[in-house]
Amino acid sequence: MKPRAKQPDAQGIGARAAALAAIQAVFFSERPLTEALDASLSQAKLEARDAAFTRAIVMMTLRRLGEIDHVIATFLREPLPVRSGPAELILRLAAAELLFLDVAPHAVVNSAVALADKDHRARHFKGLINAVARRIAGEGKAMLPSLDAERLNTPPWAWDNWLTAYSEETTRAIAKAHSIEPPLDISVKSDAEVWAEKLEAKLLPTGTLRRTAGGRIEDLPGYADGAWWIQDAAAAIPAQLLGPIKGKTVIDLCAAPGGKTAQLAAAGANVIAVDLAFERMKRVTTNLTRLNLK
Rank of each mutant, 00 (worst) to 15 (best):
A22D: 05
D160M: 07
A213G: 06
N130V: 01
T289Y: 08
H106C: 06
L293V: 08
P145F: 11
A15D: 00
S179F: 01
K248Y: 04
L115V: 04
R92T: 01
K6S: 12
A21K: 13
W162Y: 15
P238L: 07
T74C: 03
W162A: 13
G66R: 02
A5M: 15
P81A: 08
A233P: 00
A137H: 09
Q24P: 00
T54H: 01
A48I: 09
P32E: 09
R55T: 08
V188F: 10
L264K: 02
A142P: 01
R290H: 10
A94V: 07
A19M: 05
L163Y: 08
A133L: 02
I237L: 14
T208E: 04
P205C: 07
T285V: 10
L80W: 10
F75M: 06
A95Q: 03
L147C: 01
A116G: 14
L264E: 13
F100W: 13
E168S: 07
V71I: 14
W195A: 13
N161G: 03
I72W: 00
H178S: 10
G222C: 10
L199R: 09
K126D: 14
A131L: 10
P205V: 05
V113Q: 08
Y223V: 01
G222N: 11
T286D: 15
I129N: 10
Q11G: 06
A10K: 15
E197C: 04
R210Y: 03
A239F: 07
K260I: 02
A19L: 03
H124Q: 11
P79G: 11
W195D: 12
H178A: 15
N270K: 15
A201P: 06
L241I: 02
A122R: 12
A21Y: 00
F75E: 09
Y166H: 15
L144K: 02
R16T: 09
K6M: 10
D38V: 15
V132P: 04
E200Y: 08
L46H: 01
E181M: 08
R134N: 14
M143H: 04
I272T: 14
D69A: 00
I180H: 13
A131N: 08
M281N: 12
V109K: 03
D232G: 07
I272M: 11
L93C: 12
E150K: 11
I174C: 08
I90M: 09
A96N: 05
A15H: 04
D9Y: 09
T212D: 07
Q11Y: 10
D225K: 14
R290A: 09
A173I: 07
L163N: 09
A266N: 13
P81S: 05
E30P: 00
Q24M: 12
A192C: 10
T171V: 07
A267K: 07
I72L: 13
M281D: 02
A36L: 06
A273V: 09
G222F: 13
K2T: 14
A112M: 03
I136T: 03
S187H: 06
A51C: 06
A173V: 05
L80D: 03
K176H: 13
G138L: 11
P156H: 06
L293C: 12
S40E: 03
E193F: 14
D38Q: 11
A48L: 13
F28V: 14
P156I: 04
M59F: 08
N161H: 12
V274S: 14
G214E: 05
C254Q: 02
N153E: 01
A173K: 14
Q43Y: 00
H120S: 12
R4Y: 06
A114K: 05
W195I: 09
